[in-house]
C-alpha cells in the first residue's frame, strides 16, 4: 500500500458516497445516468468474485464489500425507489456498444484464459469506459448539478491516483500490470475534458454548463 493507492481508494469511496447522498438527500436522481451506474455494478461484481476464492486483507475485503453494496444501492435508488425522477430520455447511450466490444477484448487479451481471469479483465476494460453514458448525458442536457460534478471529479481522481500508484509500484516493486495500466490511462483520458471544466468553472463557483 502506498499513499497514491490509499488516496485513490478513498477518492473512489468518496465519489460513491457523494452520489448516494446526493440521491438520498434530494430524493431525486435527476441528471444521473442509471446506465453508468448499472455498468459500475457489473464492474464490481465481475472483479470482486475473488472475494469467494481468496482472502487478501481485511481492508481489501471490506472495501470490496462496501463498493459492491453501494453500487447496488445506487442502482436500486435510481431504478426503484426514485424511479419517477430518473431522466431516462436523456440517458440514451447505447451500452451494448461498450459491453460487447469490451467483452470480446477481454476474451482476446487477458493474462490467463480462465473464467475468473476473463471476468477480471472484462471488469477492468469495462470500468475504463463505464462513465461514458454519464458524460454523454451531460453533453446532451448541456449541464450538471454541482454535486454531480464533485462526484465525477472524485471518480476521475481515483484512477488518476492509481496511475501514480502504478508508477510507484513499478519503480519500487518492479511490478506492473499492462492491462490495468492501459485501461487506466484510457479511463483517465476520458475525464480530461471534464477536469478542465471542473477547474475552470466549478471551482470558481460557477455551475457546469456547456455552450449550446
Amino acid at each position: 500500500m502506498n499513499i497514491f493507492r490509499l488516496t485513490g481508494d478513498l477518492s473512489h469511496l468518496a465519489a460513491i458516497i457523494i452520489l448516494l447522498l446526493k440521491i438520498w438527500k434530494s430524493r431525486s436522481c435527476a441528471g444521473i445516468s442509471g446506465k453508468s451506474q448499472i455498468l459500475f455494478a457489473i464492474v464490481f461484481t465481475a472483479r470482486y468474485l475473488d472475494l469467494l476464492t481468496s482472502f487478501i486483507s481485511v481492508y481489501n475485503t471490506s472495501m470490496k464489500v462496501i463498493y459492491i453494496g453501494c453500487a447496488y444501492a445506487t442502482v436500486y435508488l435510481i431504478y426503484a425507489k426514485f424511479r419517477a425522477t430518473y431522466d431516462g430520455n436523456h440517458d440514451s447511450f447505447r451500452v451494448e456498444f461498450l459491453v460487447v466490444p469490451v467483452g470480446g477484448l477481454a476474451v482476446l487479451i487477458n493474462h490467463t484464459f480462465s473464467p475468473l481471469e476473463i471476468l477480471w479483465t472484462f471488469s477492468i476494460y469495462l470500468e475504463s469506459v463505464a462513465i461514458l453514458p454519464q458524460l454523454f448525458m451531460i453533453s446532451k442536457t448541456g449541464e450538471a448539478e454541482t454535486i454531480t460534478t464533485h462526484y465525477l471529479f472524485c471518480l476521475g481522481m481515483y484512477r488518476t491516483l492509481y496511475l501514480f500508484n502504478w508508477v510507484w509500484r513499478f519503480y519500487f516493486e518492479g511490478f506492473f500490470d499492462m492491462i490495468a495500466i492501459v485501461a487506466g490511462l484510457v479511463q483517465t483520458v476520458l475525464y480530461c475534458d471534464f477536469f478542465y471544466l471542473y477547474v475552470t468553472k466549478v471551482l470558481k463557483g460557477k455551475k457546469l454548463s456547456l455552450p449550446a
Binding site: R5, S54, N60, H111, N165, F175, A180
Partner: peptide, 10 residues
C-alpha cells in the same frame, strides 16, 4: 505471485 499483487488492488 504476480496475480496476488494484482488482486490486492481495488
Amino acid at each position: 505471485k504476480e496475480q496476488k499483487k494484482r488482486k490486492d488492488e481495488l
